[in-house]
Computed example of a mutant assay.
Amino acid sequence: MDRSLYEKKNRFIDTVLNIFIQLSTFISVVLLIIIIGYICYRGIPYFSLDYLVNTTSILKNTIGILPNIVNTIYMIVVTLLIACPIGIGGAIYLNEYATNKKFVTMISFTTEVLAGIPSIIYGLFGMLFFGGVLKLDYSILTGALTLSIMILPIISRNAQIALQAVPKSYREAALGMGSTKWYMIRTVLLPSAIPGILTGVILAMGRIVAESAALLFTAGSLAVLPKNIFGHLFSSGGTLTIQLYLEMAKAHYDQAFVIALILIVIVLCLNFVAKWISRKFDVNKRG
């Protein structure tokens, strides 16, 4: 009579690997706690609401990061408006329309390569092409166009996975009732895949908020409040990460840690929202 898997003893190598995995997890959690704890320790004592709602002005003798917060919001909105249609549209084409498997494989490989390119190279490309060739100079639009290329792999890949997770029976039922393919995609496929797509978008937002190297070459570091909603897109605008870099360069460590604390809170909130959407998506899929 054959022994079941439950009756078999663990090999020594299995025990070692299990210990190694648990140790790696423990080290990762400890490092995260140390980093967040140290930032909170250095940033919380100097945090004030006035610093968030004021602008830095020598004449008024005030310091603040309100322009940087506004520029960060501008960067997020404009970048997503550019990248989401391209990324989600490309995912729909690759998953639903493309029939050449070699072409799909090539595009998937290219997307993975884009995800691995260092951000400083994106910044150099954006400065030379968008800023130089297209004459956009240092501007929020130049930074947004550069970041849109950076986050395309995140949005596109998550959208592909979300579309692939939709059961084939949904497609077959809609097409069997006489609907066109585009009508099926618009009314059946996309609504079912929205949670997974939104997860990718939120993760992309976290990448936008945390980016600094690429924006230093493309968006610049000017921190002024916008006078015109659309005109501000063509002016230089330093985000929170750029301001953090400048404060560190000036040895203003207290202000730098306050900005770091704000960035940590934003990124953690975005990741918690992404996890919540993923869990809700899994629950709905199981149900």
Rank of each mutant, 00 (worst) to 15 (best):
L66A: 12
Y6Q: 07
L189I: 15
M127F: 15
I88Y: 00
L128A: 15
V133Q: 13
L94I: 08
I154W: 03
V224Y: 10
V113H: 06
A274I: 05
N228G: 11
A223H: 00
S148H: 00
M150R: 02
I185D: 06
Y38Q: 13
G178R: 07
Y38M: 12
F125S: 01
G143F: 00
V53C: 06
K102H: 11
G200D: 04
L31H: 05
W182N: 12
G132M: 10
K60V: 02
I259W: 01
F103N: 06
R279V: 12
D2R: 11
L52T: 09
T180A: 09
I76F: 04
N95T: 15
I266G: 01
T99R: 15
N71H: 14
F230M: 13
L163C: 00
L152P: 00
F257H: 06
N271M: 09
N100T: 08
P226D: 12
M1G: 13
R286N: 15
S278W: 03
P118I: 12
S156G: 04
G87N: 01
T99A: 11
L32T: 13
K60C: 01
V70E: 07
I264Y: 04
W276M: 06
T55L: 09
I121G: 05
K227W: 05
Y51M: 14
E96V: 05
N10Q: 12
I120N: 06
N68G: 08
Y138F: 15
D137F: 11
T110V: 14
G178M: 11
N95W: 03
L261E: 04
M177F: 10
N284E: 15
G237E: 01
V224T: 14
T180S: 15
I76M: 10
V113L: 14
G64A: 10
Y253A: 10
A174G: 06
S156W: 03
F20I: 08
K102A: 13
T142V: 05
Q164I: 04
I86Y: 01
T99E: 14
L268I: 08
S221G: 05
I63H: 07
S108G: 13
I154D: 03
I35E: 04
I35P: 08
F230I: 14
L246D: 13
F272A: 04
R286W: 12
L198W: 10
Y183Q: 14
S221W: 02
Y122C: 06
N284A: 15
G238P: 01
S148D: 00
P67S: 07
A213K: 05
F26V: 14
L23W: 09
L147M: 02
G178F: 11
P153Y: 09
L244H: 05
Y74V: 01
T146N: 00
I117H: 09
N54V: 02
Y253G: 03
V78L: 00
A210W: 08
G200L: 03
P153Q: 08
T55M: 10
V133Y: 15
I229F: 15
A213Q: 07
L145D: 00
S235W: 10
P167C: 09
R11N: 11
A256Y: 06
K135P: 03
Q164A: 10
S221T: 09
Q243D: 07
L152T: 02
Y6T: 08
N284C: 07
I39Y: 03
L261T: 03
D137T: 12
